[in-house]
């Protein structure tokens, strides 16, 4: 793949700059809409979803400090203790943007891994040469399963259809069905 550097979108550059900091502190995956967009889905988004390992507070404070020193700001608070206790550990997401743009997009929405399904997503993470991005994503089967079984909006079903076409020769349907069963057990029973 020899796309020119200037083919990278604002979203691509934001994600690559952000993960360059995060990967020094913990394992992460990019999930949801940006997976489809990085594979050419022609739709916009202003937030990118990231799941990180369930790191302890001290590690998060180091990560937050590195992000601030690299030109990002957290939209929820400047205090990493508060961000961790009031949001992350309670299962809520936190958001970072580039500093100095009045909280404008794009933003990175981060959550801690919350169950065995998230841990499985992180343990099977992949980079996709087709995207031309040096970024870890949750694997395609997991993305399709979440969109078809849990999220189910028009946009999500279209994302899933798009990914199914891009990877039609390689998809593991057995794996998709296995993930869908885990989603039913771990996520849908909560509702």
């Amino acid at each position: 793949m020899d796309r020119k550097i200037d083919d990278k979108t604002i979203l691509d550059k934001f994600v690559e700059d952000f993960v360059e900091v995060v990967e020094k502190h913990c394992k992460y995956i990019i999930v949801s809409g940006f997976v489809a967009i990085a594979h050419g889905r022609s739709r916009g988004t202003e937030d990118i979803d990231m799941i990180i390992e369930r790191i302890p507070k001290e590690n998060f404070i180091n990560l937050h400090t590195s992000l601030i020193n690299s030109g990002f700001e957290c939209m929820q608070s400047e205090k990493p203790d508060k961000i961790y206790d009031d949001y992350l550990i309670r299962g809520d997401s936190i958001r970072y943007t580039r500093a100095g743009i009045n909280l404008g997009p794009p933003e990175m929405e981060i959550k801690l891994a919350k169950d065995e399904l998230d841990n499985y997503q992180i343990s099977t993470r992949q980079k996709f040469p087709l995207t031309d991005l040096d970024v870890y994503f949750s694997n395609i089967e997991i993305n399709i399963a979440f969109k078809e079984e849990l999220l189910k909006s028009d946009k999500d079903m279209e994302d899933a259809r798009h990914l199914r076409i891009i990877y039609k020769e390689d998809l593991n349907e057995e794996e998709i069905n296995k993930i869908k069963e885990k989603i039913k057990k771990l996520r849908l029973k909560e509702e």
Partner: peptide, 20 residues
């Protein structure tokens, strides 16, 4: 990606301009 880049970037550029 070359075809899609202007479309994706325009949304972000317009939003940032508006927020500013």
């Amino acid at each position: 990606k070359k075809q899609l880049k202007p479309f994706l970037d325009a949304q972000i550029i317009m939003a940032i301009r508006f927020y500013n």
